[in-house]
Amino acid sequence: MTVPGYENDLELATRLADAADAITTARFRALDLAVERKPDRTPVTDADTAVEDAIRAILATDRPDDAVLGEERGGTAATGRAWVLDPIDGTKNFLRGVPVWATLIALVEDGDPVVGMISAPLLGRRWWAATGDGAWMSDSAGERRISVSKVASLEDAYLSTTDLNSWVEYHSREKYIDLVDACWESRAFGDFWHHCLVAEGAIDVTAECIVNPWDVAAAQVLVTEAGGRFSDLNGEARYDNGSALSTNGLLHDEVLAILKR
């Protein structure tokens, strides 16, 4: 529920991101940073858990009827209103001192992301969107509305994707190579950032063969509100099907045709 007379959901997401940034910036490159391994062998730091706990505490007070799904503490977003959280997307970067990481916050209503907030304090950037309100970002140049590119041919497209080993394990080495070969240029910006770059119009296609719901829920509403298209690698417009494809919309079907071939 939204508390009468109080901030709306996007304003609340902004406050949640501010709370997260205060924790992550204080713990970045900390000499006493505690690091553990989860069962899937991915790392988790004390900053990850501290951020998620802080956000959950605020939500428990300000949106007590909403569910929460977080990377570190679990939960569900199956029905109704749910906040989907990735306290630090890019934990490997965070613990190695690489400044490319962000806190991802999404509000999902009956399975559809309606608010997305992505805050990358060490990059000095924040991106946000709400259904019907467009996509926005702020950086050193100020706050502005963003939109996807107009590139209409894959041979002119700038692609970002993940490492080849993940494609070999979870999808197809051949389709990875086919997609890279079809595009003008490819990079691996990784994690949250390449979806944000699609929304900004800086790149045209982002494909990930393996993701978790908290990795891309915020990205889905950001990309779509920027005029692009978001789906899994089979073309279904869902953040929770285990893969992700963000494009400027003009290239989406062509990319799907390659990946489903």
Results as ranks from 00 to 15, higher is better:
N93T: 01
R41F: 12
R41V: 02
R15A: 08
S166Y: 10
G201M: 03
L222I: 07
E155M: 06
T14Y: 14
G74L: 02
L16Y: 08
V148T: 10
T103V: 06
D32V: 03
W167H: 12
A130P: 09
M1T: 12
L59H: 13
S138T: 02
N212L: 10
A218F: 15
I203E: 13
G142Q: 07
P87N: 08
A129P: 07
A17Q: 01
G75A: 04
V216E: 04
A152E: 05
L33S: 11
V198Q: 04
V211Y: 09
K260R: 12
A244N: 07
S140K: 05
S149W: 11
E254V: 05
C183M: 12
V84M: 14
S138A: 09
F192M: 10
L107G: 04
P99G: 04
V84R: 13
A217T: 06
V108R: 09
T206E: 11
N234R: 12
V115Q: 06
F28W: 10
D181W: 15
L245H: 12
R29H: 12
V98W: 14
I177H: 01
A219V: 01
H194L: 10
R15P: 02
V100W: 11
E143M: 14
D21R: 14
D62W: 13
D191L: 05
S119K: 06
D110T: 04
A47G: 10
E225I: 09
P43I: 05
K92R: 14
G190D: 07
L197K: 06
P113F: 14
D62C: 13
L107S: 01
T247R: 01
R96V: 05
V51N: 11
R261W: 11
A13S: 14
A135E: 04
P99T: 07
I118S: 15
A219N: 06
S246V: 02
A217Q: 05
A141R: 03
I55F: 08
L123Q: 10
W184C: 08
G190F: 02
S119H: 01
I55M: 15
K260H: 02
A19K: 00
L222T: 06
A237N: 04
D112K: 15
R229T: 06
T103N: 03
A244Q: 05
L154H: 03
L104W: 08
A67G: 13
W127R: 00
L10V: 08
D181E: 15
V114Y: 10
R73C: 10
V223C: 15
V221C: 14
L197Y: 05
C183A: 14
E52M: 03
G90T: 09
V221D: 08
G75Y: 02
A77L: 09
L123H: 03
A199D: 05
K92D: 11
W214S: 03
D40A: 04
W127I: 00
I58V: 13
R15M: 08
G235I: 03
R229K: 07
A182Y: 12
R15G: 04
D181Q: 14
R15I: 01
I258P: 10
A257W: 06
I118M: 13
A57M: 02
P113C: 10
A54I: 00
A106F: 03
V51D: 06
G132E: 00
L154N: 01
S166A: 14
S138Q: 01
V255W: 01
V44E: 13
